[in-house]
Design a protein around this nucleic acid. Sequence first.
DNA 1: AGCACGCCGACT
DNA 2: GTCGGCGTGCTC
Length: 830
Amino acid sequence: MTEDIFSTETTYFADVILPVPIPRMFTYRVPRHFAADIKIGARVIVQFGRNRVVTAVVGKIHTKPPEKYQAKYILELLDIDPLITPAQLWLFEWIAEYYMCCIGEVMNVAVPSGLKVSSQSRMQLNPDFDHPELLEEKEVEFIEILKTHTSLTYDDAIKFVGEKNINPMIKSLIGKHAIIMYEEVKEKYKPKIAKKIRLKRGYEGSEEVFNLIDSLTKSPKQQSIILEYLKHIPVNELAEKNTHGVDKTLFTQGETSDSALSTLLDKGILEQFEVIVSRFGDDVPDEPLKILLTDAQQAASDEVLQKFTEKDIVLLHGITGSGKTEIYIDLIQKVLEGGSQVLYLLPEIALTTQIVVRLKRVFGDKMGVYHSKFSDNERVEVWRGIVEGRYQFVVGVRSAIFLPMDNLGLVIIDEEHETSYKQFDPAPRYHARDVGIMLGLKQGAKILLGSATPSIESYYQAQTGRYGLVTLNKRYGEAQLPDIVLVDLKAERKAKTMKNDFSSVLYNRIQQNLANKEQTIIFQNRRGYSPYLNCQECNWVSECQQCAVSLTYHMHSTELRCHYCGHKEEIPKACPVCGSGKLRTIGFGTEKLEEDLKAMFDTARVIRMDLDTTRTKNAYQNIITEFEQGGTDILVGTQMISKGLDFDQVSLVGIFDADRMIHFPDFRASERAFQMLTQVSGRAGRRAKKGLVLIQTNDTQQSLLQKVVINDYQGYYTHEISERDSYFYPPFTRIISVTLKHEEQEKAEKAAHWLAEKLLEKLGKARVLGPEKSLIERIRNKYLFDIILKLEKDKLNIKAAKSFLREMIDALHQEKEHKEVDVVVDVDAV
DNA sequence: AGCACGCCGACT
DNA sequence: GTCGGCGTGCTC
């Protein structure tokens, strides 16, 4: 933008995206002094509302002044080079439109909060204040407190005053000009600092150092520090290498004395300095790992490449243990050599140290890792690493699709069937697989979906020729697929051979396995000890006060917990209704199986892996490592254990409650059951030895189980796809679920009926299901009603249908009696 | 989503 | 009389 002093200077306006769930942009005025520098995608700081200062992203720059209001000025421009690339901005808009949410919500999950600026109101004494006589007693006290501090935040002030509502007093003080409020704006990202030690100038020559050592013969501790230092910095290169120094921890963690070190620092022989370091000790591996593909793998890899010449998207259907990772690595290397970027998505629980270490050995410091357990600062470093071109390849979880890669050549979505790729709690309710495909296509990249149990949707695309299909039916090396056997629980119960919840078949096998020093995995997709507590006298059941579910009995933490709202309560000693002490647990979860196993096999080392034992950052990794190294005989876990973990020594897998998975009331139940059973079974027998999988069931004739037993993906798919076709489910339709929530059941229900009615009028009966009570009809004291829309992909303009839905929701909120009902829209709900 | 403004109950 | 409850409406 050139300036011409003879013409009237143009005033620029920027429409910015704010991190709030309001479905529009806000127009701010661009101050002249950075009008030349502002660009789309740059972060700016703006005031929003009376006291809020927020980070926004420029979405549009124009010269049209708003007509109905006075635009505020942008306060600050944070980036000369835009932080958000045009490619990302496009993607954010696409997500907001497709998933029917606000772009601000997308921005919120996409941009690590370390790149946002936080503002906090601070108050300080007005130095010019000279009317203390105006103050009331309380105010004087507060001013006295304030005098001892440079400034206070609101929260600080509340603590000091000891009252919750200090608002009136603060207002009064501002009115009397006794204090000043201001906004403190700061970047949250903090570089990691390492403290280092080096020789002070003048000691760098080898001669000087020898003299120094000589002079320290009377202070052996100090002398040894200098000698230790020289071990790390060779004397002959002292002059050059001394600048880098060594980590201070070298001296503080060893047996060297702290006081000797500080003496040397005090004497000015050593000096301490600080450097900014990466949070990921970006160590280049000693010997890069060379991946050798088996013939089958090489053939599959070549076939993928060949298919890519015709199709942008290829589905790699490779059975469990077929070694898909090596194929990915081979392809990634090829793409990186071609100069393009690669994004490799994995479900959160599959992104383990074992895979990261392995990839790191191949790709070294070209590779960035993006994990949800990373701190904000770590996320910012990955983000920057990509922008600065250090990372050409990123392996990451769901949210890695938001990283600023703009030259993608390949997007890999491993375990593409995983439903955890779909985010549902806060908006945006996006599916990372589908967004990953969009992202890749937009950048002209190829997309590789991988799974041993592809989703019905993806397999259908492959069957109908939209995706290329590559099949890998052979396990890696000598490994064979395990034998899968159904265990008849009915028969065992009749014969009274059950031990707790274990069939005698499973029990005996575990015992045998323990004797052979082989490992066992027990799968039960339910955490806690038992799903509820029941009174034998009056039949009372532990229930959550806020949700329509029973409270799960957790023995380890000795409490009853609601798995929906997180409510916890103490375990009653007696029935709260009739006072009877005869309380029993009904059903079982991982905790109970763990306990039973420990009781039945007292020498066995049993470990449990579920949400409850993996809450902390490293717990999950620790359990895996422990099991991997043979420190554990039996691993009991929920679906967590089914995801891409490779353990060599597992020869037995026991599966509980398969029936519950199959009969879950949801059209995806059989898909999920097949996937889960196949995936868990796949954990058995990774080496030459053939594994065994025992599935306990009440119905050994169940057709889905039969297909799992013979590993018949095709048969399962053929059956499932015809069901989907007959009942108008995906992939033939798109599902949009609309949930209405309110504290009062009647209000939620009425609003749901009102909305369903409107939708029905236009979309017709076949496309609108419900309203119906949600599966869990009350959560956190709100009653839930669902309306399900089934929209055909071919006959219907889905975009138009979505905007119609939006209009009707807005119309609902225009109605007085329905306006306080919350409406949640989930596009492609899983 | 925040956050302020505004209109009605239980307390100095 | 006021403090303080949360309904409602706006934010460039």
